[in-house]
Protein backbone atom coordinates (compact mmCIF):
# COMPACT_ATOMS: atom_id res chain seq x y z
CA UNK A 1 0.00 0.00 0.00
CA UNK A 2 1.33 3.38 -0.94
CA UNK A 3 2.34 5.69 1.86
CA UNK A 4 0.92 9.20 1.94
CA UNK A 5 0.42 12.02 4.41
CA UNK A 6 -2.71 13.99 5.13
CA UNK A 7 -4.07 17.04 6.90
CA UNK A 8 -7.26 16.50 8.89
CA UNK A 9 -9.91 18.45 10.76
CA UNK A 10 -10.97 16.79 14.02
CA UNK A 11 -14.12 17.61 15.96
CA UNK A 12 -13.50 16.18 19.41
CA UNK A 13 -15.82 16.06 22.43
CA UNK A 14 -14.19 17.89 25.35
CA UNK A 15 -15.65 17.57 28.83
CA UNK A 16 -13.79 18.53 31.99
CA UNK A 17 -15.58 16.02 34.22
CA UNK A 18 -18.92 14.34 34.74
CA UNK A 19 -20.45 17.35 36.46
CA UNK A 20 -19.69 19.88 33.76
CA UNK A 21 -21.25 20.16 30.36
CA UNK A 22 -19.09 19.20 27.42
CA UNK A 23 -18.85 20.56 23.90
CA UNK A 24 -17.08 19.91 20.60
CA UNK A 25 -13.72 21.53 19.87
CA UNK A 26 -12.26 21.70 16.38
CA UNK A 27 -8.57 20.92 15.81
CA UNK A 28 -6.32 20.77 12.75
CA UNK A 29 -3.63 18.10 12.48
CA UNK A 30 -1.04 18.19 9.72
CA UNK A 31 1.26 15.66 8.06
CA UNK A 32 -0.46 12.53 9.45
CA UNK A 33 1.05 9.36 7.96
CA UNK A 34 -1.28 6.82 6.37
CA UNK A 35 0.60 4.14 8.30
CA UNK A 36 -0.24 5.56 11.72
CA UNK A 37 -2.90 4.01 13.89
CA UNK A 38 -5.86 6.18 14.87
CA UNK A 39 -4.56 6.49 18.44
CA UNK A 40 -1.11 7.54 17.20
CA UNK A 41 -2.87 10.31 15.29
CA UNK A 42 -4.52 11.39 18.58
CA UNK A 43 -1.05 11.21 20.23
CA UNK A 44 0.24 13.64 17.59
CA UNK A 45 -2.67 16.00 18.33
CA UNK A 46 -2.01 15.75 22.09
CA UNK A 47 1.72 16.56 21.60
CA UNK A 48 0.61 19.59 19.62
CA UNK A 49 -1.84 20.65 22.37
CA UNK A 50 0.84 20.29 25.06
CA UNK A 51 3.26 22.47 23.05
CA UNK A 52 0.49 25.06 22.69
CA UNK A 53 0.01 24.95 26.46
CA UNK A 54 -3.47 23.44 26.20
CA UNK A 55 -5.03 20.49 28.01
CA UNK A 56 -4.40 17.23 26.07
CA UNK A 57 -7.40 15.02 25.21
CA UNK A 58 -8.07 12.26 27.72
CA UNK A 59 -8.80 8.87 26.10
CA UNK A 60 -8.64 5.23 27.18
CA UNK A 61 -6.04 2.89 25.71
CA UNK A 62 -3.70 0.17 26.89
CA UNK A 63 -2.43 -2.72 24.78
CA UNK A 64 -2.92 -1.04 21.39
CA UNK A 65 -3.08 -4.43 19.75
CA UNK A 66 -6.83 -5.02 19.89
CA UNK A 67 -7.05 -7.45 22.79
CA UNK A 68 -7.43 -5.50 26.05
CA UNK A 69 -10.76 -3.74 25.55
CA UNK A 70 -9.61 -0.39 26.90
CA UNK A 71 -9.87 1.80 23.80
CA UNK A 72 -13.26 3.20 22.91
CA UNK A 73 -14.26 6.30 20.86
CA UNK A 74 -17.34 6.78 18.71
CA UNK A 75 -15.82 7.83 15.37
CA UNK A 76 -18.10 9.42 12.74
CA UNK A 77 -21.09 7.69 14.29
CA UNK A 78 -19.47 4.28 14.58
CA UNK A 79 -18.24 2.53 17.72
CA UNK A 80 -14.50 1.86 17.20
CA UNK A 81 -14.71 3.59 13.81
CA UNK A 82 -15.73 2.35 10.38
CA UNK A 83 -13.84 -0.94 10.12
CA UNK A 84 -15.70 -4.16 10.91
CA UNK A 85 -14.42 -6.27 13.81
CA UNK A 86 -11.67 -3.77 14.58
CA UNK A 87 -10.92 -1.85 17.78
CA UNK A 88 -10.05 1.87 17.60
CA UNK A 89 -6.38 1.10 18.22
CA UNK A 90 -6.31 -1.18 15.18
CA UNK A 91 -8.03 1.35 12.93
CA UNK A 92 -5.36 2.84 10.70
CA UNK A 93 -5.15 6.21 9.03
CA UNK A 94 -5.11 4.72 5.52
CA UNK A 95 -8.91 4.74 5.99
CA UNK A 96 -8.80 8.54 5.58
CA UNK A 97 -7.67 10.92 2.90
CA UNK A 98 -6.30 14.43 2.92
CA UNK A 99 -8.84 17.06 3.96
CA UNK A 100 -11.23 14.70 5.79
CA UNK A 101 -13.18 15.83 8.84
CA UNK A 102 -13.56 13.28 11.65
CA UNK A 103 -16.05 13.61 14.52
CA UNK A 104 -14.93 11.84 17.71
CA UNK A 105 -17.31 11.29 20.63
CA UNK A 106 -17.15 9.22 23.82
CA UNK A 107 -19.38 6.14 24.37
CA UNK A 108 -22.71 7.68 25.30
CA UNK A 109 -24.78 5.77 27.85
CA UNK A 110 -26.21 6.64 31.24
CA UNK A 111 -24.43 3.58 32.65
CA UNK A 112 -21.08 4.82 31.22
CA UNK A 113 -20.64 8.29 32.72
CA UNK A 114 -17.93 10.43 31.15
CA UNK A 115 -14.82 10.70 33.32
CA UNK A 116 -13.12 13.23 31.08
CA UNK A 117 -13.24 14.00 27.34
CA UNK A 118 -13.36 10.62 25.57
CA UNK A 119 -12.77 8.44 28.64
CA UNK A 120 -15.87 6.88 30.19
CA UNK A 121 -16.36 4.91 33.38
CA UNK A 122 -17.09 1.29 32.43
CA UNK A 123 -16.92 -0.11 35.97
CA UNK A 124 -20.59 -1.06 35.63
CA UNK A 125 -19.29 -3.97 33.51
CA UNK A 126 -16.98 -5.01 36.37
CA UNK A 127 -19.91 -5.05 38.79
CA UNK A 128 -21.91 -7.25 36.38
CA UNK A 129 -18.98 -9.70 36.32
CA UNK A 130 -18.79 -9.56 40.13
CA UNK A 131 -22.48 -10.51 40.26
CA UNK A 132 -21.84 -13.93 38.73
CA UNK A 133 -19.37 -13.98 35.85
CA UNK A 134 -17.17 -16.60 37.48
CA UNK A 135 -17.06 -20.21 38.66
CA UNK A 136 -17.07 -20.48 42.45
CA UNK A 137 -17.23 -24.26 42.83
CA UNK A 138 -13.97 -26.06 43.41
CA UNK A 139 -12.95 -27.52 40.08
CA UNK A 140 -9.60 -28.82 41.33
CA UNK A 141 -6.45 -28.95 39.28
CA UNK A 142 -6.56 -28.85 35.51
CA UNK A 143 -7.58 -32.36 34.50
CA UNK A 144 -6.38 -34.47 31.67
CA UNK A 145 -8.25 -33.15 28.65
CA UNK A 146 -9.63 -36.58 27.78
CA UNK A 147 -11.27 -37.04 31.18
CA UNK A 148 -13.72 -34.19 30.56
CA UNK A 149 -15.28 -34.69 27.14
CA UNK A 150 -16.72 -31.53 25.57
CA UNK A 151 -18.43 -31.42 22.20
CA UNK A 152 -16.30 -29.65 19.62
CA UNK A 153 -19.20 -27.34 18.68
CA UNK A 154 -19.77 -26.32 22.32
CA UNK A 155 -16.08 -25.70 22.92
CA UNK A 156 -15.96 -23.54 19.79
CA UNK A 157 -19.09 -21.57 20.74
CA UNK A 158 -17.77 -21.05 24.25
CA UNK A 159 -14.43 -19.88 22.91
CA UNK A 160 -16.13 -17.48 20.47
CA UNK A 161 -18.15 -15.98 23.35
CA UNK A 162 -15.04 -15.73 25.52
CA UNK A 163 -13.47 -13.52 22.83
CA UNK A 164 -15.50 -10.61 24.29
CA UNK A 165 -13.02 -8.01 25.58
CA UNK A 166 -15.66 -6.03 27.51
CA UNK A 167 -14.98 -2.78 25.67
CA UNK A 168 -18.60 -1.62 25.71
CA UNK A 169 -19.00 -1.01 21.97
CA UNK A 170 -22.27 -2.98 22.12
CA UNK A 171 -23.68 -0.49 24.64
CA UNK A 172 -22.34 2.46 22.65
CA UNK A 173 -23.87 1.16 19.41
CA UNK A 174 -27.24 0.11 20.84
CA UNK A 175 -30.04 2.69 20.44
CA UNK A 176 -31.25 1.49 23.87
CA UNK A 177 -27.78 1.51 25.45
CA UNK A 178 -28.34 -2.15 26.32
CA UNK A 179 -25.53 -4.36 27.62
CA UNK A 180 -27.16 -7.62 26.53
CA UNK A 181 -24.44 -8.63 24.06
CA UNK A 182 -21.75 -8.27 26.74
CA UNK A 183 -23.75 -10.09 29.42
CA UNK A 184 -24.81 -12.81 26.97
CA UNK A 185 -21.19 -13.45 25.97
CA UNK A 186 -20.11 -13.73 29.61
CA UNK A 187 -23.03 -16.01 30.53
CA UNK A 188 -22.55 -18.12 27.39
CA UNK A 189 -18.87 -18.91 27.66
CA UNK A 190 -19.36 -20.35 31.14
CA UNK A 191 -22.77 -22.01 30.64
CA UNK A 192 -21.50 -23.99 27.65
CA UNK A 193 -18.73 -25.70 29.62
CA UNK A 194 -19.12 -28.35 32.35
CA UNK A 195 -17.22 -26.21 34.89
CA UNK A 196 -19.67 -23.34 34.52
CA UNK A 197 -22.86 -25.36 34.17
CA UNK A 198 -23.65 -26.03 37.88
CA UNK A 199 -24.15 -22.30 38.61
CA UNK A 200 -25.77 -21.35 35.34
CA UNK A 201 -29.22 -20.45 36.73
CA UNK A 202 -27.99 -18.24 39.54
CA UNK A 203 -25.44 -16.68 37.23
CA UNK A 204 -28.03 -15.70 34.61
CA UNK A 205 -30.43 -14.30 37.23
CA UNK A 206 -27.77 -12.35 39.15
CA UNK A 207 -25.90 -10.90 36.17
CA UNK A 208 -29.11 -9.73 34.50
CA UNK A 209 -30.33 -8.23 37.80
CA UNK A 210 -27.04 -6.31 38.11
CA UNK A 211 -27.24 -5.24 34.44
CA UNK A 212 -30.72 -3.77 35.05
CA UNK A 213 -29.55 -2.12 38.29
CA UNK A 214 -26.65 -0.40 36.53
CA UNK A 215 -29.08 1.44 34.27
CA UNK A 216 -28.56 -0.22 30.90
CA UNK A 217 -31.51 -0.30 28.51
CA UNK A 218 -33.31 -3.46 27.48
CA UNK A 219 -32.62 -5.45 24.32
CA UNK A 220 -35.04 -4.98 21.43
CA UNK A 221 -33.14 -7.28 19.04
CA UNK A 222 -32.08 -4.46 16.74
CA UNK A 223 -28.66 -6.01 16.09
CA UNK A 224 -26.47 -2.88 15.99
CA UNK A 225 -24.32 -4.42 18.77
CA UNK A 226 -23.40 -7.44 16.66
CA UNK A 227 -22.58 -5.17 13.70
CA UNK A 228 -20.22 -3.03 15.80
CA UNK A 229 -18.62 -5.65 18.05
CA UNK A 230 -14.83 -5.65 17.44
CA UNK A 231 -14.71 -9.35 18.37
CA UNK A 232 -17.66 -10.51 16.25
CA UNK A 233 -19.76 -11.68 19.23
CA UNK A 234 -22.95 -13.12 17.72
CA UNK A 235 -26.61 -12.44 18.56
CA UNK A 236 -26.74 -16.21 19.04
CA UNK A 237 -25.42 -15.46 22.52
CA UNK A 238 -28.37 -13.18 23.31
CA UNK A 239 -30.76 -15.98 22.31
CA UNK A 240 -28.80 -18.28 24.61
CA UNK A 241 -28.91 -15.79 27.51
CA UNK A 242 -32.68 -15.49 27.01
CA UNK A 243 -32.98 -19.29 27.17
CA UNK A 244 -30.75 -19.45 30.26
CA UNK A 245 -32.71 -16.67 31.96
CA UNK A 246 -36.18 -17.96 31.08
CA UNK A 247 -35.09 -21.44 32.21
CA UNK A 248 -33.89 -20.04 35.54
CA UNK A 249 -37.02 -17.92 35.88
CA UNK A 250 -39.37 -20.89 35.77
CA UNK A 251 -37.05 -23.49 37.33
CA UNK A 252 -38.45 -25.29 40.36
CA UNK A 253 -35.20 -25.50 42.30
CA UNK A 254 -34.16 -21.86 42.54
Amino acid sequence: MEHYTMNLTLKVWRQKNNNEKGSFETYQVKGISSEMSFLEMIDVLNEQLIVEGKEPIAFDHDCREGICGMCSMHIDGRAHGPWAQTTTCQLHMRQYKDGDTIVIEPWRAAAFPVIKDLAVDRSSFDRIIQAGGYVSINTGNAQDANSLPIEKQKADDSFAAAACIGCGACVAACPNASAMLFVSAKVSHLALLPQGAPERKERALNMVAQMDKEGFGSCTNIGACEAECPKGISLENIARLNREYIGAMFAGDK
Binding site: K11, G22, F24, H74, D76, G77, R78, A79, V103, E105, R108, A109, A110, A111, A173, P175, N176, A177, S178, G215, F216, G217, S218, T220, N221, I222, G223, A224, A227, E228
Partner: peptide
Protein backbone atom coordinates in the same frame (compact mmCIF):
# COMPACT_ATOMS: atom_id res chain seq x y z
CA UNK B 1 -39.90 0.07 27.42
CA UNK B 2 -39.48 2.66 24.67
CA UNK B 3 -39.43 5.61 27.07
CA UNK B 4 -37.24 3.75 29.59
CA UNK B 5 -34.76 2.85 26.87
CA UNK B 6 -34.70 6.46 25.62
CA UNK B 7 -33.73 7.59 29.13
CA UNK B 8 -30.66 5.32 29.12
CA UNK B 9 -28.82 7.69 26.80
CA UNK B 10 -29.26 11.20 28.14
CA UNK B 11 -26.72 12.82 25.82
CA UNK B 12 -27.33 11.75 22.22
CA UNK B 13 -24.65 11.31 19.56
CA UNK B 14 -23.88 14.14 17.15
CA UNK B 15 -23.26 11.56 14.42
CA UNK B 16 -25.07 8.23 14.56
CA UNK B 17 -24.58 5.06 12.55
CA UNK B 18 -28.16 5.05 11.24
CA UNK B 19 -28.81 2.36 8.65
CA UNK B 20 -25.16 1.25 8.52
CA UNK B 21 -25.56 -1.07 11.51
CA UNK B 22 -29.31 -1.73 11.80
CA UNK B 23 -32.61 -1.58 9.95
CA UNK B 24 -34.81 1.51 10.24
CA UNK B 25 -37.90 -0.53 11.04
CA UNK B 26 -36.10 -2.34 13.88
CA UNK B 27 -35.42 1.04 15.45
Amino acid sequence: LYFKNKSKRTQSYKVSAGNATSKWYSR
